[in-house]
């Protein structure tokens, strides 16, 4: 299959939804929409009146089953250049240049099967959510576990939706760890993801697990190294590094 050339198109903002204090989801209607693979991203480009341009990549949160539009969930980086614009200035009805879908490495769809372990830190959950939404839309029962690290319960993106998915009893389970402020009465994990935690969560899948890790670079490094030490075959591990927390 010959791919169409990657080109910029004007996406119209049809919805903006706050997710957490630091994250919002933006829905763009795309004139040249094409189905993506869960885990792929779009580039977003801003242009100032003087011609100055800047661009960033954001993971797609929506599943390919949602036609003609994409949803990007973006964390607001206080000193950032693009994310504060998206959060503070962009309004429904605005048009923004985007290009995509991009990437073929950090992708999963139901054809690839499982068992599936998704490990996310902070807004690293976004591409994992596209995988989970796709899995749900396909009524897949691929055994799937997610280990999701957040500072506090308020920082958990898609919390209600994840709880709903877990309640569906279709083979999906979510595990949370809170690194700064666990909710009152929390009896689960309350530390950074480490080898012991990974070993517990991966246990039923053992070395068959297909693992996707996305988050700040240092989290991804730690998780990937721990998985390799567990002798998980390296070709079953896919990583996507976001850079540092808060930059």
């Amino acid at each position: 299959m010959v791919q169409p050339v990657l080109e910029w198109q004007a996406g119209r903002v049809t919805a903006i939804r706050p997710e957490t204090r630091q994250t919002k989801s933006f829905t763009f209607a795309l004139p040249k929409w094409m189905a993506h693979r869960p885990g792929q991203h779009y580039d977003v480009r801003l242009t100032a009146p003087d011609g100055y341009q800047t661009q960033r990549s954001y993971s797609i949160a929506s599943p390919p089953e949602r036609l003609r539009e994409i949803e990007l969930t973006v964390e607001r980086i206080p000193d950032g250049e693009v994310s504060p614009y998206l959060h503070d200035v962009l309004m429904q009805g605005d048009e923004l240049e985007v290009r995509g879908p991009i990437g073929g490495y950090f992708v999963w769809d139901v054809r690839l099967g499982g068992p599936l372990l998704l490990v996310g830190g902070g807004s690293g959950v976004v591409p994992l959510m596209a995988m989970l939404r796709h899995r749900a839309a396909q009524h897949s029962t691929v055994p799937t576990r997610m280990l999701y690290s957040s500072r506090s319960a308020e920082d958990v993106i898609y919390h209600d939706e994840l709880n709903g998915m877990a309640a569906a009893n279709d083979g999906f389970e979510a595990f949370y760890t809170f690194t700064r402020q666990p909710p009152a009465g929390w009896t689960g994990y309350r530390r950074r993801i480490d080898a012991a935690m990974l070993a517990e969560v991966i246990k039923p899948f053992d070395k068959r697990a297909r693992v996707y890790v996305c988050g700040p670079t240092l989290l991804v490094e730690a998780v990937a190294n721990a998985l390799v030490e567990m002798e998980l075959p390296i070709e079953q591990i896919r990583t996507e590094r976001f850079g540092p927390t808060g930059v």
Binding site: R45, T47, A48, P49, D50, Q53, Y85, L96
Partner: peptide
């Protein structure tokens, strides 16, 4: 490419 001007984006 020239690019569509982003409303309210002032650049640096």
């Amino acid at each position: 490419m020239a690019g569509l001007i982003s409303r309210g984006f002032l650049g640096r």
